[in-house]
Structures are given as structure tokens and as C-alpha cells.
């Protein structure tokens, strides 16, 4: 089921991903769709995760398959990384940091501020990011020009 509600929550993250990739990661990407997590099977190898608190609270994760994570960090550094190692893991942490920070800027423009944590990175095939069960878990899927997929996973709630 595609998400039609909460466009206000999804759009800033889509814009933030585009901005980070356009500015610093020379890999063509396109948003493929937004889904409820339980309705879209995901199999990723590495996720950068950040917690946020404030008017908007919850968790943000950016998840990649191993091969694409190496390509993303290679593009960031301007050097080819052949191995999935601590450099790639560190780089994915910085990617989620920049995406979350840029989304924060966009939310603040609309009067919805929040603070972000330091990034953490989860590594492991088919890992799952779990957070509060009473908030919708949304998956925004992006695709590269080569057909590889990555996703932004959101588990957010608005404090009224």
C-alpha cells in the first residue's frame, strides 16, 4: 500500500536525500516509492541510524546493500573502495548524519524543530531496525541508475 497520508513527513526526507546525493555523491538516484514497512520486504546489509527528539521524534535509518554502500562511500571520497570495511561503515554513518541534518533544516523551515543524535551504524545481512511499535514504520525506496535499491526507514511521531 503506497503512502498518501504523511506526505509532509516524507517529502523533506526525499528532498534531503536528493540534496545530499546531488551535492556530494555522484550517483544518479530516483525515488521509487513509499511503503509501510511490513508491506515491503527489505534486505539490506548496512544501516546508518539516528534518533531524533523534539516536535518530531523517533528514528531515521538509511539502509544499503553492501555493494551500493561501497559505491556511495567511494563516491563521497572520490576513491574506489573495493572492500566493505570500517571506512564504508563510517561513511554510511556520515550519510545518515547529512540526510538527517538536511531534513532537519527543511522541517525547521516549517516550524517543526528537532534534535538529532550521533549516528550509529548497524551491519549484518537482513538486519531489522525496530523502534516504537505504535508509530507507522515508513520505507522510502530509492533506486540508482544501475537498478540498485536503498531506503530511508522512518519511525516518527509528531508531538502536538
Amino acid at each position: 500500500m503506497a503512502i498518501s497520508v504523511s506526505k509532509d513527513l516524507i517529502a523533506p526526507f526525499v528532498d534531503a536525500v536528493s540534496n545530499v546525493f546531488n551535492t556530494m555523491i555522484d550517483i544518479q538516484i530516483e525515488k521509487q516509492g513509499a511503503y509501510l514497512l511490513e508491506e515491503h520486504k527489505v534486505q539490506y546489509d548496512v544501516s546508518g541510524v539516528m534518533g531524533i527528539t523534539g516536535k518530531l521524534s523517533g528514528t531515521i535509518a538509511v539502509s544499503f546493500p553492501k555493494k551500493l554502500s561501497c559505491q556511495v562511500v567511494s563516491a563521497l571520497l572520490g576513491e574506489k573502495l573495493e572492500t566493505f570495511d570500517e571506512t564504508v561503515v563510517d561513511g554510511i554513518g556520515e550519510v545518515v548524519n547529512m540526510i538527517s541534518g538536511d531534513a532537519k533544516r527543511l522541517f525547521e523551515n516549517n516550524g517543526m524543530g528537532f534534535e538529532i543524535s550521533l549516528p550509529a551504524v548497524v551491519v549484518g545481512s537482513n538486519h531489522k531496525i525496530s523502534s516504537k511499535s505504535n508509530v507507522p514504520h515508513v520505507l522510502i525506496v530509492f533506486q540508482t541508475g544501475d537498478g540498485d535499491e536503498f531506503a530511508v526507514q522512518l519511525a516518527l511521531q509528531v508531538e502536538y
Partner: peptide, 12 residues
């Protein structure tokens, strides 16, 4: 910067 990758990016 606490990110080694970001330190490299800044220098680059």
C-alpha cells in the same frame, strides 16, 4: 570531526 570519512572529505 568524529567521522574519519568526513575528515578525508574536508581535506579533499
Amino acid at each position: 570531526d568524529d567521522s574519519m570519512v568526513m575528515r578525508k572529505i574536508v581535506v579533499k
